Computed example of a mutant assay.
Amino acid sequence: MSDETPICSAKGCRTDAVWVLAWNNPKLHTPERRKTWLACEEHREHLSQFLGVRGFLKDVVKFEDWQAPEGA
């Protein structure tokens, strides 16, 4: 793993990220704004559920397919 390899956002995880979880908090962000968390295979479901229960999760895509929206 190089310094430029993205890693999972789960606390304590140092595994390479495979997924991008795009989210926003409607109380803080404009509707088009997307924040991102990165996830490995093991933590994708847990992180998705964490964001989903709060109504924050907008999209889950493979890291290699992720294109950040303009202005993000």
Rank of each mutant, 00 (worst) to 15 (best):
E64A: 01
W66G: 03
L21T: 05
E32P: 13
P6L: 10
A22R: 02
A68E: 10
M1A: 14
C13H: 03
E64R: 03
G71E: 15
E64I: 10
G55Y: 09
P31F: 05
K35I: 05
W23A: 03
L38M: 11
E70S: 15
C8I: 03
I7W: 07
P69D: 12
F56D: 01
V18K: 13
E32A: 10
G52L: 08
L57V: 02
K35V: 03
K35L: 10
D16C: 00
F56H: 11
R44F: 00
H46P: 00
G52V: 00
H29K: 04
V53N: 11
H46I: 06
L38K: 02
W19Y: 14
L47A: 05
V18L: 13
R54N: 02
L28V: 04
S2D: 15
L38T: 07
K27S: 13
T30Y: 14
E4W: 15
P69K: 11
E45T: 11
P31A: 06
V53T: 12
G52P: 05
E42Q: 12
D59Q: 12
P6E: 07
G71Q: 10
E45L: 06
Q49F: 09
E64T: 09
L21D: 02
Q49H: 04
R54W: 10
C13V: 08
S48H: 06
D3L: 13
L28E: 15
S9Q: 01
E41F: 15
A17C: 11
K11Y: 10
R34V: 08
T30V: 05
N24K: 07
C13P: 05
D65Q: 07
G55P: 03
N25T: 00
F63N: 06
N24L: 12
T30A: 06
F56W: 09
P31I: 07
W19C: 04
I7G: 02
E42R: 04
G12R: 09
R14S: 12
A10N: 13
L57G: 08
H29Y: 08
I7C: 09
H29F: 13
V20E: 03
V60I: 08
D3Y: 06
H46A: 00
N25W: 10
L51V: 06
S48P: 07
D3R: 13
V53E: 09
G55R: 03
D59R: 12
T36M: 10
C8E: 04
G52Y: 00
K58R: 15
L51R: 11
A10Q: 13
S48W: 04
K11A: 11
S2V: 11
T5I: 02
E64W: 11
G71D: 14
T30W: 14
N25Y: 15
N25H: 11
P69W: 14
D16T: 01
A22I: 06
V20C: 10
V18G: 09
V20T: 01
A39T: 05
L28N: 13
P26H: 13
P26I: 10
A10K: 04
S48R: 01
L47H: 05
C13F: 06
E64H: 14
M1Q: 14
G52N: 09
V60P: 00
D16F: 04
D3Q: 14
V60R: 07
R54Q: 11
W66H: 15
A17M: 05
C40K: 02
Q49E: 13
W19F: 12
R54H: 13
L51H: 04
W66R: 14
K58P: 00
S2A: 15
S48N: 09
P26V: 12
I7R: 09
T15I: 07
T15R: 11
E42S: 05
S2Y: 13
R44A: 02
A17D: 05
